[in-house]
Computed example of a mutant assay.
Amino acid sequence: MEIMAAVNECFSLGSTVACKTCFKQEIEGEVLAFDPQTKMLILKRPASNNRSSLNDVHIINLALVSEVQVTKEVNNLPQVPLSLNLQKLNIRVRNQIEEKRRLVKALAAGVSPDGQKLFLAISKTITDIAWQGSNIAVWNSVIITPPYKLDNVKGTPEKAVSHIKKVVEKYLKDQAMSESTPTVGLLPEASPVQL
């Protein structure tokens, strides 16, 4: 693997850099940060979901990059200081930690992978969700028992049960579709973080 000489130099904030990873993925973006000791480069580019209020942020280990090229050099610092929304990042960290705790609790209870996936699917839209042993409890009133199918959704009020059944039904349809769709390639591409 050959890394170009630019890696040994510093990248200027605001410059545009193009990289080719060892997985042949090409990433080009604006330099947010560079640590020459660890050879870690942080690039910002427009959001992959086309939302103008968001950006994709790639953290790149230059030790795993086959090509690096500065496509646009910026010698003076940008007029507007670059900053990250620390409050938003802290909330995301707390949410990720809580999600990992829930997964650990599910693993300790011996919950099947299907149950874990359903739990995560529901938790994306409903935050009042918890494990009760191997059962999924939503709003403390709706319980989903193994094997986590539509017939396993019980509780009150009926409106809440009906809503959760729709969520479970959508999840089961999505799972069936994803299992019938062949996957392409052996290695997943790195997914960017959106801020």
Rank of each mutant, 00 (worst) to 15 (best):
V31S: 10
A109M: 15
I27M: 05
L187E: 15
A108E: 15
C19G: 02
H58N: 05
L187F: 09
A106L: 06
W139D: 02
I91P: 01
E179M: 13
V17Q: 09
G133P: 10
R45M: 14
G115K: 03
L89T: 08
P188C: 14
I59W: 11
K39R: 09
I144Q: 01
Y171T: 01
V168E: 10
R51S: 15
P157T: 02
D114A: 06
N140Y: 04
G185K: 04
T156K: 09
P192L: 04
F34T: 02
A5D: 13
Q116T: 02
A121Q: 04
V80D: 06
T21F: 13
K100M: 15
G29T: 09
I59S: 05
T38A: 07
G115N: 03
S178F: 04
I122L: 00
Q79P: 12
R51G: 14
V193P: 07
L86P: 01
D174C: 08
L41K: 01
D35K: 03
D114C: 07
V184I: 12
K124I: 01
A160Y: 03
A130H: 11
I129H: 00
N95K: 10
I136A: 03
A190Y: 01
L32D: 02
E28I: 01
Q79D: 14
A176G: 03
K72D: 12
D128M: 07
Q116Y: 02
L89Y: 02
A137L: 10
P157A: 06
Q132D: 08
R51Y: 11
L118D: 13
D128K: 05
R101T: 03
E169N: 05
G133C: 10
K170H: 12
V138P: 00
A106E: 01
N50D: 14
V168A: 12
I144Y: 00
T125C: 05
I27H: 06
E2D: 00
S66N: 13
L54T: 13
S15T: 05
Q96I: 00
T127A: 13
V193T: 11
K100A: 15
L64Q: 13
L187R: 09
L118R: 08
A63Y: 15
A18I: 02
D151C: 10
N50T: 13
L13P: 10
V70S: 14
V70Y: 13
H163S: 04
L13W: 04
P113Y: 02
K88N: 12
L13G: 05
G29S: 01
A47G: 11
N90P: 00
D151I: 02
I122R: 00
L195Y: 11
S52H: 14
H163M: 01
M177Y: 06
T183S: 08
I164P: 10
V70A: 13
T145H: 07
F34D: 02
T38G: 06
Q194L: 15
V74R: 09
P188K: 13
E98G: 07
A160E: 04
S134F: 15
L43C: 09
P46Y: 02
N75Y: 03
K105Q: 14
P188A: 11
F23S: 08
V57A: 04
G115T: 00
T145E: 10
P113I: 00
A109W: 15
